[in-house]
């Protein structure tokens, strides 16, 4: 009886671990990737990044101008 009990517990444990190990059980953003709307997020992030890059380029150019001005003196 004791053996049967422990076997049941063990088998239940194994089943639960198998269920947990199934990759399909883990929730991933498959729907968002399939619907294609993830591209909207990527587009927004790219715009933010490019905006910051343009801003940095403008600062870079301003500093270059100042350097040239000081050299002329």
């Amino acid at each position: 009886m004791k053996l049967l009990k422990s076997l049941t517990v063990l088998s239940l444990f194994l089943i639960s671990s198998i269920v947990n190990a199934q990759p399909g059980e883990i929730e991933m953003a498959d729907a968002l990737l399939e619907s294609g709307k993830i591209y909207v997020v990527i587009a927004v992030l790219c715009t933010v990044f490019i905006g910051l890059v343009i801003y940095t380029v403008m600062i870079d150019i301003k500093v270059s101008k100042l350097e040239k001005d000081l050299k002329r003196k």
Binding site: M28, L33, F49
Partner: peptide, 18 residues
Amino acid sequence: TIIFGFLIEVPALPILHE
């Protein structure tokens, strides 16, 4: 990295997910 960081296949791991 911004573009492909979202698009590539990543391993489905518990707790971490996406």
